[in-house]
Design a protein around this nucleic acid. Structure first.
Lengths: 152, 152
DNA sequence: ATTCGGCTCATACTTTAGGGTGATTTTTAA
DNA sequence: TTAAAAATCACCCTAAAGTATGAGCCGAAT
């Protein structure tokens, strides 16, 4: 049934063709086609089938898909670490790691557990981070680090 | 000249039509069109002009455009407060204010000074914020609030 | 081989943050 | 106007964060 619906246009076209040929036959019987009338007949036929062809084409043509890029504000998932800043401030890999976890709201104890080191180690890292970022508190560090593109 | 280019297809069609009519005239002169040959002639004409019509339609039809919105990440400098979330969580104006300053790395004492209230007041606000955001620390609160679009 | 930076850990101490409770005063909305 | 919500503040106590200092370990560079 889907096939029938899909090729409905083709069927209609075929049916129309048959009807037209019958019509032509009838016209042939009805009038004697004279030489001068032939061009008119052929012209009418040409126009008719041209229109039929156009109609058929329009019906069957698949719509061309045009991709239009619409600018949609998306929370930029892309983050590019500013390694220049990182080097400039002299922040080590481990310190950056701590900074990232800090930004996620983890306590020093949490971070220590996560990295399998002692609480004191994290405290030391934190202190160095604060020194290098020239801040006093972790919330400041996180804020500044985000602005400097050190963390997402 | 643009017009000429635009309607080139139409011109070609018209030219083809003229050529075909001439051909028909020549054929007429060449052979005596007998009754039995007429249907074949008409059929060929029909098919020819149908194809011509299809070709014409395809050439002239403007492509049906289907707009597909492609999400392009744009760095969103703009921040729109999610008031729905704010209402859902029951966070008051003052609390949001405190939250914003908290996100900037200010200590409770700093915030108290900034808002001309006592440290205890800020502590109370903080506690309520943490309750409503279901967090334990200010760093968590800031992180969560940013994800919920409560603060920039 | 030795110096140096990075990572680790510890102890001691201070400051800040956070939890709990209770209370007063505005402000807002029914 | 009156009840509810918001904002204010205090006191006490605990937990977490931050400061200061010293030290051992290890790998890379000189």
């Amino acid at each position: 049934m889907v096939l029938l619906a899909r090729y409905r246009s083709v069927l209609i076209y075929g049916f129309s063709l048959a009807v037209l040929l019958l019509l032509m036959k009838w016209l042939e019987w009805r009038f004697i086609i004279t030489d001068y009338a032939f061009e008119i007949y052929a012209g009418a036929l040409a126009i008719l089938f041209t229109l039929l062809g156009i109609w058929l084409a329009v019906k069957l043509t698949n719509p061309k898909t045009v991709v239009i890029e619409k600018q949609v504000p998306v929370k930029s998932t892309d983050f590019i670490l500013d390694e220049v800043q990182l080097a400039r401030l002299g922040i080590s890999k481990r310190e950056l790691e701590v900074l990232q976890l800090m930004a996620q709201g983890l306590s020093n104890q949490n971070i220590a557990d996560r990295l399998f080191v002692s609480l004191n180690t994290i405290k030391t890292h934190s202190s160095k981070i604060f020194e290098k970022l020239e801040v006093q508190r972790r919330t400041q560090a996180v804020d500044k680090a985000k602005n400097l593109n050190l963390i997402p």
